[in-house]
Amino acid sequence: MSPRSIIRLEAIKKVFTTDEVETHALSDIHLEIAEGEFISIAGPSGCGKSTLLSILGLLDTPTEGGYTLNGKPVAGLSLSERARIRNHEIGFIFQSFNLIGDLTVYENVELPLVYRGLPLGERRTRVMEALEEVGMSHRAKHLPSQLSGGQQQRVAVARAVGGRPSILLADEPTGNLDSTNGDAVMDLLKDLHRRGSTICMVTHDARFAQHADRTVHLFDGRVVEESLAKA
């Protein structure tokens, strides 16, 4: 039996219109991501990687095309419904970590669970598990400003996995890190993948893209190539 499809994009098109000028950010994108898969989306700057990730993460809507998440079409959902699906099904890892400076490490990881309305006890369990998973439980009471970049990104990963989402969307997760910390974060993602997480990572760094099972190459808003990792 083939793995279950988490994400299915069909003929996705995204057009930005400014001052009567149309910019085709994405054209005719077909993409399917299976459960447990680690996929990377690669391409040069401006090729549409971030736009694609925004659509995958329900942060933006396509101009045309179909998007099915966990078997359910998500086009035409209300803002609050999209927010609910983001909270339950998607874990984000951002290039610039995006931890909230006023909140402690613990509170940052807890934030999506608060929005989900989980009871306190369950939140505590999940947060500590997530922090253990990324090796940051000993810094739970620290503020982000007291952590290195690599540590901040580990906390961001914990925040993404704490809600046990269907898929992790990582946007250049090593982009703001030095090579040592970048490697460590990649190892962490690979470890998560090994333990069953589905990951979709945007990167322009071929060195990190090759860690994925499959790499989708974008150019001028189109998929120009798909390559599988060497066994």
Binding site: G57, L59, L79, S80, A83, R84, R86, N87, H88, F92, F94, N98, I100, G101, L111, P112, Y115, R116, R159, G163
Partner: peptide, 16 residues
């Protein structure tokens, strides 16, 4: 703004 965007991305509703 950015923090609010992050919160929204993490699932915060408009009412939140």
């Amino acid at each position: 703004t950015r923090e609010l965007g992050v919160r929204a991305a993490l699932g915060a509703r408009r009412s939140d």
